[in-house]
Design a protein around this nucleic acid. Structure first.
Length: 511
RNA sequence: GGGUCGUUAACUCAGUCGGUAGAGUAUCUGCCUUUUAAGCAGAGAGUCGUUGGUUCGAGUCCAACACGACCCA
């Protein structure tokens, strides 16, 4: 704390002298009648140096972002949720007493202003203050006005500061909110119901991933944070909710990267009597129209690369992509042994029980995935890697499934759902048997889900879209941490903190 | 988990060959009633990420650790 001494102390002293002048440092009396966005149009017809003849009074509240003080007058920039406007304060108008109080104001304070509007010499619309109210005194200085806050660690840890001073960051999160709103609107318009299913699950199913474990004391049982909502949403199809979706968090206990946060937001939706082909059409239309709405165009740049989201999007089977993009001989793909040998040659390590389907998928990830820049649906995923997808009726080694790739990254995964309880049970059991030596993956057969299928689930197709990755794409964000308000970081260390003690505790809880 | 880079004032950054810790912004004091990176004059502000080591002497060299970024698995 000692490093903050000087600034904090100075601010405290100012705060005290304001209190002595009778100012409440944290008043909740001020109710702004206006926001900046409302005031701006009122000044449209004013000339430079002209005051609003109607003398209409406005009141606004916000944070002081900058100050330019003169002896007996000053200009400030005030920011509220809708924008920024300049405030002009002069001693002559406010009176000696109020102006003395103003001198103790700092950049970062949240204040209320009442006044009339005018334009300055250079034509900037400003509010001339006739009354001023302290709403919240700031005790810490804001980052430098010109460079702003560039240290990414501080931006992620102290997002509140980032949001105050980084307009791009505010814009990204507003865009995120808008994208999610548009997804909801799109699905609602098609008659989908938004539902919430369990985040804590006794059997973490619906994907292959390492779950987080937690414990319920009263029930004295372990629970897992969900890795996917899939099996619950399909239970709702059984229950007769024929179009459902959920936008919520999934949790995966795996590595962190620019594309992976331990908790991430997923859209999953299920539509009875649809097939995966209809979902490809839906996805193409939904994503491209949302892009048009938030970016004004379907042609965007992602980190300097042009991406065209205008439909129709390319559709390739996995085998076609291996031939067209990886340049693999189509004859080779027909020979299971040759496929396995090629995977080995490329340095892919496979479990002993892995078949050609797994090998093809690995080859795809290695040789094709990153080359899919414009949106591309890859279809005909091997049954081996698709435990929940419906088999293709003509070729049972593949499923009626697609994944969507944009800028070399997986954005969506969808398929025609498996609704045959016998087939589903066999596949679950095989998955458990095949888990290999990875105990953490934790596959278990969800027998209640099998029972649900035994009551009869309508034919259906379902899909998951990674919302964080969609926002990254549409907001041109390089890291998933730029689109998550509070991304996961290790606890920060401070010199005067008992770090050693913390480490001891951590070790104990690991054991 | 591995590799590379980074961590110096509240913020953005310099810091040469190992020899008294620097700038701009912010802050404080004075002047200043249309500025907008306002201006002028002056002042204060540092656990150089942490802990060790080498050295007469370490922000600088070495090691370990912490946190972060990027790449790889």
């Amino acid at each position: 704390m000692s490093q903050d001494n000087q600034t904090l102390q100075q601010r405290r002293e100012k705060a005290e002298s304001l209190e002595e002048l009778g100012v409440k440092l944290y008043s909740n009396r001020f109710k702004p009648a206006n926001i900046v966005r409302d005031i701006v149009p009122k000044g449209e017809n004013l000339q430079a140096e002209e005051h609003d003849q109607s003398a209409e009074s406005f009141s606004i509240a916000g944070r002081i972002m900058s100050m330019r003080k003169f002896g007996k007058a000053a200009f400030c920039n005030l920011a509220d949720r809708s924008g920024q406007i300049q405030i002009y304060l002069k001693k002559e108008l406010l009176g000696d007493e109020e102006f003395e109080k103003f001198k103790k104001w700092d950049i970062g304070d949240i204040v209320g202003i009442e006044g009339t509007i005018f334009k300055t010499k250079v034509g900037e619309l400003s509010v001339q203050a006739k009354a001023m109210t302290m709403i919240s005194k700031s005790m810490r200085p804001l980052p430098e006005k010109w460079h702003g806050l560039t240290d990414v660690e501080t931006r992620y840890r102290q997002r509140y500061v980032d949001l105050i001073v980084t307009p791009e960051s505010r814009a990204t999160f507003r865009k995120r909110v808008e994208i999610i709103r548009l997804v909801r609107e799109y699905l609602n318009n098609l008659g989908f119901m938004e539902v919430e299913t369990p985040m804590m699950q006794a059997v973490p199913g619906g994907a292959t991933a390492k779950p987080f474990k937690t414990h319920h004391n009263a029930l004295s049982m372990d629970l897992f944070l969900r890795i996917a909502p899939e099996l619950y949403l399909k239970r709702l199809l059984v229950g007769g909710f024929e179009r459902v979706f959920e936008i919520n968090r999934n949790f995966r206990n795996e590595g962190l990267s620019t594309r992976h946060n331990p908790e991430f937001t997923m859209l999953e939706f299920y539509q009875a009597y649809a097939t995966y082909e209809e979902l490809m059409d839906l996805t193409e239309d939904m994503v491209s129209s949302i892009c048009q709405a938030v970016n004004g165009s379907m042609e965007i740049q992602y980190q300097g690369t042009n991406v065209n989201l205008a439909p129709p999007w390319k559709r390739l089977t996995m085998d076609e992509s291996l031939v067209e993009i990886a340049g693999i001989d189509p004859e080779l793909l027909k020979d299971d042994q040759a496929v396995l040998a090629l995977a080995k040659e490329k340095g892919i390590k496979l479990e002993p029980q892995s078949g050609p389907g797994k090998a093809k998928t690995e080859l795809f990830e290695l040789l094709v995935e990153e080359k899919l820049i414009d949106p591309t649906f890859i279809t005909s995923y091997p049954t081996e890697v698709s435990p929940l997808a419906r088999r293709n009726e003509d070729d049972p080694t593949v499923t009626d499934r697609f994944e969507l790739f944009i800028t070399g990254r997986e954005l969506a995964n969808g398929f025609s759902e498996l609704n045959d309880p016998v087939d589903q049970k066999e596949r679950f059991e095989k998955q458990v048997a095949d888990r290999g030596n990875d105990e953490e993956i934790h596959p278990e057969v969800d027998y209640d889900y099998i029972r649900a299928l035994e009551y009869g689930m309508p034919s259906a197709a379902g899909e998951g879209i990674g919302i964080d990755r969609l926002v990254m794409l549409l907001a041109d964000a390089p890291s998933i941490r730029d689109v998550i308000l509070f991304p996961h970081l290790k606890p920060e260390t401070t010199p005067d903190q008992g770090r050693m003690e913390k480490n001891d505790n951590a070790e104990e809880s690991n054991n």
